[in-house]
Design a binder for these strands. Structure first.
Lengths: 341, 341
DNA sequence: TCCTCATCTGACACCGGTGTCATAATGTTG
DNA sequence: CAACATTATGACACCGGTGTCAGATGAGGA
């Protein structure tokens, strides 16, 4: 036997037809149990493996999902947002459990391969990560919708199609932070992130935060808001600019952990103690959060559940089944560590 | 036009045969330039995409590589070693650049799918990550070699097949740490990691470290070595056990950053100041290293280059071409931060 | 004019499975 | 025992491309 064994080889050695081999190996009820045993035995001996390409071609599907991780093309290529990497882990597992393979690709805004994976039958569906940070994502969505590509997206909303999104309840997360600060008696708050519609996740976090404070009779001053993207450096710079303008606050909400970590660095450099002078809370609960100094209080997003939901919803879409929209908004959780008190 | 357009559709509209369409779209010199233009134009209009399954089936290859990340099945599933995730990023990019797709899978020792990806024609070759931490990896390698699967491996050696491995010069890394400690005048050293053959990378780090110290006339006492796997918790526990036995040292080399971070926590809890009382150096240069307190001195592994080498070498293996073994051992670099002085 | 050669194109077998349909073998019923 | 249902199997078309081979066309040379 040179090369890989095919189902014809199995058929030959088992003394049956190739059709029967195919049926036997896939558990069709149409084949006699005794025959099946013989076929399975021969297949095992010849180390037979179904050729995925042939199988996929015929079945017109790929048993494969693709993850497209959007990357800001300006950022250093070694700096992949750890939050998405952690999500990637749980997506991988959820895929494996469902019998799907996972293609991974890091995309930048410049290329337009988004629909290609589906259109070339390489993947049955697509999971989009990181599009909440991408300004012109709606145009990408349009392209995908137009080509009838099955996809789900983390964080960013697709207009009028709530079933395509899985997200953390960002607004609720902001609320939790506000309540934590209220409890600490520190309502003189700064916010580092993005309050514009360009960043739907960050602005939702801010809105939940600001509204809860407002209900408590406190207004978050415009002056105490600084814009940053989700990197340590950006958080550092934004915070530094607030301090340079001599703006005072006793609590700081960073729209992501990386921002908060950068903020802490800026505060410490300015001689402010965390949490003594300023309480800091982040968002994400990256692995880093536990290790930084002081350990960072943060809003935990359940990435394991998120990955599972993304995969489950996508598979439902592929199977043309209902998606439970309500449960696709995941509850965040406040984790209090030493950076806030 | 319902469903996706096929090459027959293009042929029909362009007024040529299907064969010509296939040739035209793949740049065959056999087709007239004028004809090609017409075909390409029609294909663009109909949004035609080559069906990867059909193409792969016929061509008997997949234009896809697979990354298998080995995971210790005992570890918490949310805790994927960030070092490998960072490598994954660069592998993804290197693949994309070479026109290959990337399948990602997290494997545990329990399943034996390693060769499946290749045997089922889902991937042309396999990249193994994390096998240096896996005790019985050689048996997996045997299985892959037996089935003639093309693969490359990070860190772990495949007996007699140096061309299958890409690794950091771990021994050299250990040497750099030793030289750093010598320079600091802190030669009373502890080592947290694994000096046994079970962990080829950790033991190489230790050997380079110990030999350099020996050349300087210093012996690393057995008593100052504690065994740990690459997690923060394990590093913490190992260090704690040294301290519990009242063992003194002025420098500590953690075989990985996670170990070193755990060690710092144990030291600080015991009232020891880092770096005042103990200088600590890790290995990897995870993103965390910069953010922990004090920022961690460490040996940087160039994950970008590593990913590129892994992909390049694997593609060479697939094409039955020579692999440059010498350049597959990557130079490490010492990064000095505040944890050592 | 006839032959040769280069250039371009179409017909067709093939990759390795899957699913449908026809049919043989066996059992069941009136 | 005829009529029919059930079970198990094989033959075959098909998925959508790729690569080979044969043939058509036109130019150039004898």
């Amino acid at each position: 036997m040179k090369g890989k064994a095919t189902s014809f080889d199995i058929a030959h050695y088992a003394g049956v037809s190739q059709s029967t081999v195919s049926r036997a190996l896939r558990g069709s009820p149409l084949v006699n149990e005794e025959t099946r045993r013989r076929v399975v035995e021969v297949a095992r001996k010849l180390n037979y493996k179904v050729d995925k390409n042939a199988s996929n071609l015929r079945a017109q599907q790929s048993s494969t999902l693709a993850v497209l991780l959007f990357e800001d093309p300006t950022s250093d290529e070694s700096q992949i947002n750890p939050f998405f990497l952690s999500m990637l882990g749980s997506i991988t597992r959820a895929c494996a459990k469902a019998g799907y393979d996972l293609l991974v690709s890091f995309q930048s805004s410049s290329n337009d391969w988004h629909a290609d994976y589906a259109e070339s039958h390489r993947a049955d569906g697509i999971i989009l990560l990181g599009y909440g940070d991408y300004i012109d994502y709606q145009s990408k969505f349009d392209r995908l919708l137009e080509s009838n590509t099955k996809f789900v997206c983390w964080g960013a909303n697709v207009e009028g199609r709530p079933e395509l999104t899985v997200s953390c309840d960002n607004s609720r997360g902001g609320t939790l932070v506000a309540e934590h600060f209220i409890e600490l008696g520190r309502t003189d708050c700064a916010f580092i992130g993005d309050t514009s519609h360009h960043s739907p996740e960050f602005s939702a976090r801010f809105n939940g935060f600001a509204e809860r404070l407002k209900a408590h009779g406190v207004h978050v001053s415009e002056r105490k808001i600084a814009t940053a993207i989700s990197t340590e450096e950006s958080g550092y710079q934004a915070t530094k600019s607030l301090l340079a303008n001599n703006i005072k606050f006793t609590a700081l909400f960073g729209a992501s952990d990386l921002i908060a970590i950068g903020a802490i660095r800026a505060l410490q450099e300015a001689g402010l103690r965390v949490p003594h002078d300023v309480s800091v809370v982040g968002f994400d609960d990256l692995a880093v959060a536990r290790f930084c100094t002081p350990p960072l209080s943060t809003i935990q997003q359940n990435t394991t559940l998120a990955g599972q939901m993304l995969v489950a919803n996508l598979l439902n879409l592929i199977a043309d089944q209902e998606v439970d929209v309500a449960s696709s908004v995941l509850p965040p959780q406040l984790i209090v560590r030493q950076s806030s008190k």
